[in-house]
């Protein structure tokens, strides 16, 4: 099927098979930040934004995304750069494999909840598994960014 997808702001028109999954499509287009960590839609590693909403690219047919806009971390660099340094300052990235999905979902979180509580953060990111960090350092990093931003605003 011939589809047109806006991937990170760039229109791509391409023939894809009916069962092509979005994760494979974006990786084919060199968006290597998008990772596959399971086959059961549980890990959140493959999170991308579809028309601004976080979704699992492993569970979406590319055909279904025809006419829509997809953003991977490659297309969200500026927004990510605002806060990932705070996560790095905690040493929270560890192996890094789950980071892109977590960072993309954090972008979605911060757009939806400009001033989230710790509980909001945990809830929103609960679908992003991480085996290295124990999660607390990620939370500290996001919290440090939010505190910084508040201080900045004051």
């Amino acid at each position: 099927m011939l589809i047109t997808i806006t991937l990170n702001g760039k229109k791509i028109t391409e023939e894809v098979t009916a069962d092509s999954l979005l994760i494979d499509f974006v990786r084919h287009h060199k968006c290597f930040s998008v990772k596959r960590g399971c086959e059961t839609s549980n890990c959140g590693l493959c999170t991308v934004l579809l028309d601004g909403k976080p979704v699992l690219s492993c569970s979406l047919l590319t055909c279904r995304v025809n006419g829509h806009s997809v953003q991977t971390l490659e297309g969200l660099q500026e927004e990510a750069k605002e806060f990932v340094g705070f996560i790095a300052n905690q040493g929270a990235e560890q192996c890094g494999f789950c980071n892109p999905g977590m960072v993309v979902n954090t972008i979605a979180l911060l757009r939806e909840y400009p001033d989230p509580s710790d509980e909001d953060i945990r809830q929103f990111l609960s679908g992003n598994l991480c085996r290295c960090s124990g999660y607390e350092s990620q939370l500290r990093g996001i919290r440090a960014y939010l505190d910084f931003r508040k201080g900045d605003a004051a």
């Binding site: 290597f32 490659e74 660099q77 990510a80 340094g85 996560i87 790095a88 990235e93 890094g96 960072v103």
Partner: peptide, 13 residues
């Protein structure tokens, strides 16, 4: 900071 931290957090290959 871990030397590779920013590259990993920004999803570089």
């Amino acid at each position: 900071m871990k030397k590779d931290a920013m590259q990993l957090l920004l999803g570089k290959p």
